[in-house]
């Protein structure tokens, strides 16, 4: 694990802890507000506690959203490149991970057609990206 990945994991765990604490406190405030209004008929402090609880949950939601973005960032770093090969003899198609030295048009020295054993040629090199919706 690289230093940057360790830092990312540390930050992730810290935020997870903060998320749990804020969520618990918020739920406690919501309970307190609810209890104040229903059982003690305290209509000044009750709504205030309730508001605090809801605001706290809102903050927790924002933290959870930011954490999911941190995850997406990690996935983005691990972008995979694929090489698409075709058999020069029978046209059998194959996809594997990109290797250094691959380029489109090259007859790959290390790949043989699983069907007829002939050489395979690189026909495309690409990556897969999930389209973000606006």
């Amino acid at each position: 694990m690289s230093v940057e990945e360790k830092q990312l994991l540390g930050a992730y765990l810290l935020w997870a802890l903060i998320l749990v604490v804020i969520s618990l406190i918020s739920l406690a405030f919501i309970y307190l507000g609810w209890d104040s209004m229903l059982n003690q008929e305290d209509y000044v402090n009750g709504p205030f506690y309730l508001l605090m609880g809801i605001a706290g949950l809102g903050i927790a939601g924002k933290i959870a959203y930011d954490m999911s973005k941190m995850r997406a960032q990690k996935e983005e770093r691990e972008q995979k490149i694929f090489t698409h090969l075709e058999c020069v003899n029978c046209g059998w198609k194959l996809e594997r991970e990109f290797r250094e030295g691959d380029y489109v048009g090259r007859v790959s020295p290390n790949d043989k057609c699983p069907k007829c054993g002939s050489s395979m040629r690189v026909m495309a090199i690409y990556t897969r990206v999930k389209e973000k919706r606006a």
Binding site: Q79, F82, A124, I125, Y126, T127, R128, V129
Partner: peptide
Amino acid sequence: LDAITAMREEIAKAA
């Protein structure tokens, strides 16, 4: 920005 980063599959298939 796609123009300067690794070619996307859908672009390669458009050829």
